[in-house]
Structures are given as C-alpha cells and as structure tokens.
Design a protein around this nucleic acid. Sequence first.
DNA 1: GATGAATGAGTATTCATTCAT
DNA 2: TATGAATGAATACTCATTCAT
Lengths: 201, 201, 201, 201
Amino acid sequence: MSDLTEATDSGRRAQTKTRNRDAILAAARRVFAELGYETASVRDIIRRTDLASGTFYNYFRSKEAIARALAADAAERLRPILRAERERATDLEGWLDGVIRAYFRYLVEEYGQASGLPHVRIDATPAQRAVFEELRESLTGILGDRLAPQADTDFLTAGAIGIARYVGEQMLRRAPPDPDAAARFAARMILHGLPAVARDG
Amino acid sequence: MSDLTEATDSGRRAQTKTRNRDAILAAARRVFAELGYETASVRDIIRRTDLASGTFYNYFRSKEAIARALAADAAERLRPILRAERERATDLEGWLDGVIRAYFRYLVEEYGQASGLPHVRIDATPAQRAVFEELRESLTGILGDRLAPQADTDFLTAGAIGIARYVGEQMLRRAPPDPDAAARFAARMILHGLPAVARDG
Amino acid sequence: MSDLTEATDSGRRAQTKTRNRDAILAAARRVFAELGYETASVRDIIRRTDLASGTFYNYFRSKEAIARALAADAAERLRPILRAERERATDLEGWLDGVIRAYFRYLVEEYGQASGLPHVRIDATPAQRAVFEELRESLTGILGDRLAPQADTDFLTAGAIGIARYVGEQMLRRAPPDPDAAARFAARMILHGLPAVARDG
Amino acid sequence: MSDLTEATDSGRRAQTKTRNRDAILAAARRVFAELGYETASVRDIIRRTDLASGTFYNYFRSKEAIARALAADAAERLRPILRAERERATDLEGWLDGVIRAYFRYLVEEYGQASGLPHVRIDATPAQRAVFEELRESLTGILGDRLAPQADTDFLTAGAIGIARYVGEQMLRRAPPDPDAAARFAARMILHGLPAVARDG
DNA sequence: GATGAATGAGTATTCATTCAT
DNA sequence: TATGAATGAATACTCATTCAT
C-alpha cells in the first residue's frame, strides 16, 4: 500500500470511527429516553445500530460511561446558549425568559414529537438530568446575583426551576409544542405569580 | 394449653408477623428511596432485615407488589389530610398553603434527616410518585375550579406543582426541615411570584 | 381429666389422626394424578385439605415418602385381587382375562371419570407405576410358568404388559369405561393377535 | 487479514459454534433421559459441558426450547424412515415389521448401551414422546386403512403400540440389543398373538 | 477496529422442610 | 398434635463485559 492509500485509508477509518460513535450515541439517546437508564440494556442500544455488541466497548468503557458522555455532550451544547442569553438580557424578566427559552427549545429539539418518542419524562436519564442541572446553575447564578441578601435564594431557585421543569414537560405533550410561548409563560409565572398568568392564559 | 396461653401465643405470633411485615416495608422504603425502584433488588431489601430471602415472599408476592403496597399506603395516608385541608380553607392562598403543608409534612416524616437517608430524589419510587400524584390531583382539582376559563390551566397547575416539588426537595436538605415555613413560601410564590418571596425570604 | 375422659380423648385423637392421614393421602392421590409427581408440590396437597402445611410432616416424612406410601397402598390393594384371580383361573385365557380385568377395574375406580380428573396418563405417578408393576409381576409369574422354556419370556411379558397398559389407558377415555370388555379384548389380543379381535371389534 | 484467513477464521468459529451447540444438545439428551424433563435442570445440562451457564442461552431460549428442539429433531429423523417403510411393504406383517424396526433402530442408536445411560424409560422426555407419537401415527394410519370397519380401531392400535413400546424398552436392556429381531417379534405378536411367538422365542 | 460467542455474577421467585408457639 | 411463618438452597434466566478470531 502506498502512503497515499494509507492516508486515504486512515481518513476513511477516522470517518468510520466517528460515524460509528455517533450511531451508538444516537441509539443510546433514544433507548435511554424510551426505557430510562436502568431498564435500557447495552444490547438494546447496539441492536439499533448495525454494529456488533463487542464494538460498543471500542467506543465506550461501559454503559455508565456512554450515559456520562451523553450527559456531558448535552450539557455542553446547552451551556454556551445559556451563557449567550445571560449576556443578552437587560432585565430579570428578559433574562429568565431567555434562559428558559433556550432550555425549552433544547427539549423540543431533543424530545419533541418529531423524535418519534412516546411520552418523555424529563429527568429519567443522566443526559436529561445534566441538562436540567445546567439550567439550574444558570438560574442559581443569576438569582444569587440579583436577589436581596436576605432572600431565601435556595427556595427561590428551587421554585423557579420547578416551574421550568413541569411547564417544560407539559409543553412537550402539546402538538405542536411552542417553546417560546411556554418560556414566556414560565418566566412571567416566576416573576408575577399565578394571577398574572391566569388572566391571559 | 389453656385459652389464655393460646391467646398469648397467637398474640405473640401476630405481633411477630406485623413486626416482620413492618421491617420489610421499612427496609423496602429505605432501599427504594436510596437506589430507586429499578436498581433496588429484593435481596437488598431483605439484607437490611434479619430475615431470610424466602420470607419476603410470605409477605409480598413480588418486588412490584411491595412497591405498590408502599405507594398505596403512602397515598392513603396523605389523601384524607389533603381532603381536610381542602375543606378547611377559605381562600385560595389558605388552601394552597394547607395542601402543600400536608405534602411537606409527609415528606419530612418519611424522608427527613431522621430517616438517615442520604439525599432523596422525590420521585424515584412508586410511593413517592403516588404521593406526588395525590398532590397533583388536589392542585388540579382546585385550580381547575377557581381559575378563569381562558387560563392555561395545564401550564398553571404544572407551574404550581413544580414549585411544590422542588421547594419540597430543597426543604428536605435543611437541618432541621421546616415544612410549615416551606409551604408558606411555596404558596406565596405560586400566588405572588418571586418578588413577593424575595423580600422577606 | 379422668381416665375415662382421657380414654375418650385418645380415642378421638386416634380417629382424628387417621382422618387427617386419609385426607392427606386422598389429596395427594388427586394432586399427583393431575400434575404428576414432579410438578405437584406439598403445598398443592395440603391446600386441598383443611390442614396446615406443617401438619403434613406429622404424617409423612417427605413428599417422596407420601408418594411411596401411596404406591405401597395401591399395590397392596391390588395384590390380593390379582392373587385371587390367579387361583380362580383354569386356563391361560381365563387367567389373563382375570388379571387384566382386576387391573382395569382398579384403574376405573381410581381414575375413571367419576374421579373428576382430566385425562390421566397411567404411569405419571409412583402409585400408578407401582400398581402397574404389580400387574407386571403377575403376568411375569404366570407366563414364566406356562410358557415353553425356549420362549422369549421377557419379550412376551413385555408385549402382554404393553397391550394391557395402552388398552387400559384408551379405556379410561371412554364414557362410560367398560373394564370387563376392555380386559376381554386385551386378553384375546394377547393370545390370538390382531385378526382375532379385528373381526368382532 | 486476507480473505483466506477470514474464511478460516469464520470457519473455525462456525465450527466451535456447532460443536458447542451439539455438546449442549447431547448433554441435554442425556440429562433429560436420565432425570426426566421436569427434574432435569438447565444447570444439570451445562454442568456436563465445559461451557458457562449463560452460554446455554446463546443457543436455546429456554429449557422448554431445547426440549422442543430435541423432540423436533428426533421426530424428523424418524419420519422419513417410517414413510419409506410404509411404501416398501407389501403386506401388513411386512409393514408392521418395517415400521417397528425403524423405531427400534432409532431407540438403539439413541439410548442403546453405547450411550452409557442407565435404564431408560422410553417416554420420560419430550423427544421420546415425539418419536413415539410418530410411531403411533404411522400405526394408526395403516391400521385404520386395513381393518374391517366394525373393528375397534382405537383398542387395536393401542394394543399394537403397547407391544412396540414395551418390547422396545425390553430390547434396550439387552446386550447387545437386536432391534431387527425384536421388531420381528413385535410384529408377529401383534398379528398372531402369544402362542405364535412363544413357540420359537 | 469489528465481531459475536463466552462468561459468570446477579435477578426474582419457588418450595421442601423445620421449628417456635 | 396442629399451626403457619421462617428458612435457604435451588431454579430459570439476564446482562454488562471480555476476548479469541
């Protein structure tokens, strides 16, 4: 084999490598979302791939490892968006709205009906939890900055997160889901409470 | 054997029986809370007991069955309290406060630090989900009654539930947890939003 | 307690004892016939009794032991009848007929439709095998006596036994089963072969 | 790797695979024959193999499945032979002889002393029953065709089957077993009865 | 790197038998 | 003697992971 061929070969190989890795990741994402981390088996994952079971372990050390990779990847995709929203905002409401919208758009992209997934619980997999944690950190950071020192920041953040979490899940049930409207709703509810959002539904 | 002895005998036996049943239930409650339903094994449960593996099946038909029993029991303990709160309340805030307080008290009783449990995720077991569902139904019922028809009841209920869920979880992390204060916080946040609760923490 | 009472008591006790023993035996007979020895469990047996599981072991040392008892009992009931038939007979045909009739009557009594049992395989339990073995011994004994020394007694007995076994099973499927006719058929088939019994069905 | 190596590789692998499969089947055949289907455990089977317990399930879905495979395989091996015998025969005796001989040869091959098996009950496993059922169908078919309509075909077939069954079992006890002689005996006994075969043993 | 069979610890559950009452 | 709960070894089967090819 000439160097040229070899170069081509290794190019192809690298290509195959990422293609396989991506295929496994994609399969795992779906399987975890459908069955939950515990119930899903490595065999479930590779079965949705044209690879053999042993190949899984060329790419990931364990079932736990792929879940972690998935989680890290999801968190890393969301993180810069959240940061951008944080910088763009001028007031608290705008900021909340931006951050939650980013999260909701992520949810729709990942678990919206187009994904063909059945009803999705939003924290059944490590990836979902990681993404949610990303949101939590953003909220914690900002609220910690802006609230009066005597405020119960933990509880406040918890409340805000709760709204985002369950309104987000509810949004995913709608056809079509509207992440922007849902985010506006959540942000207003966080800031002004139930009566404010009850008036104009 | 005299009747007296016999009565004592069967009394003791019945006593042992309930003691064992309770021990298994308690162990299961802890194990499920620590590991989650899927991860927990029947062996994990009986290992925390001084009973033999087979004994588990003298009391419960299956792992699923004990989870159901735990869930039904928990839901049934909460239900009458929720109903009572519903009747006692005169305004929406009082009502929200009462219902959430009932839920939070239940959480503290069940998963407060006294239980020696590490950090508890509030919806990892069928029992927790059943209790939470009980709360959801209460909230859904009341909010459905009181809100203007054009309001987005699903989203509103989702938001209220989210606040209760995550403020409750946060409360469990405190030493000592104060369910009444936390409930007041949650109810006010639901009704008036973040600024109202940020002022006086 | 006076001696008198005691005597009465122990009389009652003995009575209860045999009643219990018989109840367990009867239940076991049915359960073994329905499920086969392997599949039947001790719990299956005592469940058909108003006794408790532990009581079983006051009467029989083990599941195997009750099966042996059942087998011995059945064999002992059949044995004198077979012996009587053997003595009554004047020729080989009469003798075969008598012995097989005794066996078939036993089958009908034990496993005929009146027993409410579903289709019965005739050698699924130790008792059935013991009874069958009794028949085999009778046949072996007689044929050994009467056959020419150069005859292949083992094969001949095997053949005769086979006819009795399968014609007997077939008979049990009929409503009502007619053990006497079936025995006559079997005896004639053994002695004269298929054409003899084919003529007059 | 060159194609050649690959071919060799997969050849070896396929070889191992069939070797393992055959080893499991052989072990199962023996274990079932010795202990009966109910009593035999999957562990008993793999223990007679140098494989690990999980490996069993790479080859068969369940204990039931391997029993079915064994039964189907046995029946399929016997079926064409029986059919051939049926076509070759010119008279009833020849036909009976052929069919029973096929069955007896199968028995010797499968459970003859070379197998090292202790005394074998001929209908304790699904495979044995399947093979026997194959014989029964052959006998039923032919006798149904050739007998006078008023004949009691059920009883006649039962008798013929019984002879084959027990003479076959008896034959297996001999060293060496002679399936052809035994078949001739059985066929003659079916057709002419005991005296015919008693004369020349 | 890809394959897929092999591994064996682990799972829920059953059941003959024992034993305190 | 009767009771029935307790026992623990055994069962069929699963699955994350390894490894020879």
